[in-house]
C-alpha cells in the first residue's frame, strides 16, 4: 500500500492583500493565511488515492512561524500526519533552498512511494519546486498531471502541457505535480475537523535536517516588491434600464473608435 507525501505551502490570501496607491507598497496586514490553492488539489489527490487503495498520507510544509495555523486544516483534509518546518528563514528562501529543505525532510522521514505537489504556489507561482525535488531525490517527475493513478509499483498520469496532452508512466518512487482541474478539494466535515485534532503534528526543526549552510543560502534575492495598480477610467453604467446602459456604452465605444 502506497506511502504518499504531499507538499503544501501556507501562503497569504492574495485577495486580502492591498496595494497602497501612494507608494505601491503591499499592505498584507489584513491578509489571512491559506493552504495554497492547487496544493489543496494535491492533498485531495493524495487522500483520494489512499481512500481508494489503502496506504497513508503525510503532509509536509516549510514556512515561517505562521505555518502552525495550517496544520489543523491540512489534517482535516485527510492527511494522517503533518510534518512541519517553521523557520524565519522561509521568508527569504527561494526554490533552491526550499527544495533542499523539503528533500532533506523527505530523506529523514521517508521513504515515500509518491510525493505530490501542486502545479504552482499561489504566491510565487514558480512552477518549479516539484521538478527540483525530483531531481534532488533522483526520482522521475510526472509534472502537470490532470489524472493520476497508481498501478502496483508504477504511477500513470495524464499530463497537460499547453499544446499537448500525454499519457505518461513512471516507476515508483516518483514525484508528481497536480493541476487544479484534477479534482474538487473537499470541504472538511465536522468529524474530519474534530479528527484532525488528534492526529500527529510533527515539528521538524530546520537545524535537525543537517543541511550545510551553502544549501540554505538563496540563489535568488528579492530587492523589492511593487504592487500593480489598475489605472482605468471606471465609467460604470448601472441604471435599471439596460437599454440605456447599452446605448451609453455603445456611444463610448464609438468615441474610442472601437465600433
Amino acid at each position: 500500500m502506497p506511502n504518499i507525501l504531499v507538499c503544501f505551502k501556507w501562503v497569504l490570501d492574495e485577495q486580502d492583500i492591498k496595494v497602497r496607491p501612494a507608494d505601491l507598497s503591499l499592505d498584507s496586514s489584513r491578509a489571512k493565511g491559506k493552504i495554497s490553492d492547487f496544493d489543496r488539489n494535491a492533498i485531495e489527490a493524495a487522500v483520494g488515492l489512499v481512500e481508494a487503495q489503502g496506504g497513508r498520507v503525510d503532509a509536509l510544509t516549510f514556512g515561517g512561524p505562521s505555518v502552525k495555523n495550517a496544520l489543523k486544516d491540512v489534517l482535516s483534509r485527510g492527511a494522517d500526519r503533518v510534518l512541519w518546518i517553521a523557520d524565519p528563514l522561509a521568508e527569504t528562501a527561494d526554490a533552491f533552498v526550499t527544495a533542499h529543505v523539503l528533500a532533506a525532510a523527505i530523506r529523514q522521514h521517508g521513504p515515500y512511494d509518491l510525493v505530490l505537489c501542486g502545479e504552482g504556489s499561489s504566491d510565487a507561482f514558480n512552477q518549479q519546486l516539484p521538478v527540483r525535488l525530483a531531481a534532488l531525490l533522483d526520482q522521475p517527475c510526472l509534472s502537470f498531471a490532470q489524472t493520476l493513478e497508481l498501478q502496483g509499483d508504477r504511477a500513470r498520469a495524464t499530463r497537460k502541457l499547453g499544446d499537448s496532452v500525454e499519457e505518461a508512466e513512471a516507476g515508483l518512487p516518483a514525484v508528481a505535480s497536480v493541476l487544479g482541474e484534477m479534482n474538487k478539494p473537499r470541504i472538511p466535515t465536522l468529524k474530519q475537523v474534530l479528527g484532525a485534532a488528534k492526529k500527529p503534528q510533527i515539528e521538524v526543526p530546520l537545524a535537525a535536517l543537517g543541511l550545510e549552510a551553502g544549501l540554505l543560502r538563496p540563489r535568488s534575492t528579492r530587492l523589492g516588491v511593487r504592487g500593480f495598480v489598475m489605472n482605468r477610467r471606471n465609467i460604470i453604467f448601472k441604471e435599471p434600464d439596460a437599454a440605456a446602459n447599452v446605448a451609453r456604452l455603445a456611444a463610448s465605444l464609438a468615441s474610442e473608435g472601437l465600433c
Partner: peptide, 10 residues
C-alpha cells in the same frame, strides 16, 4: 507575485 498583484525585482 501573488497572481499578478505585484511585481518583484530579484
Amino acid at each position: 507575485l501573488y497572481g499578478g498583484l505585484a511585481v518583484s525585482d530579484e
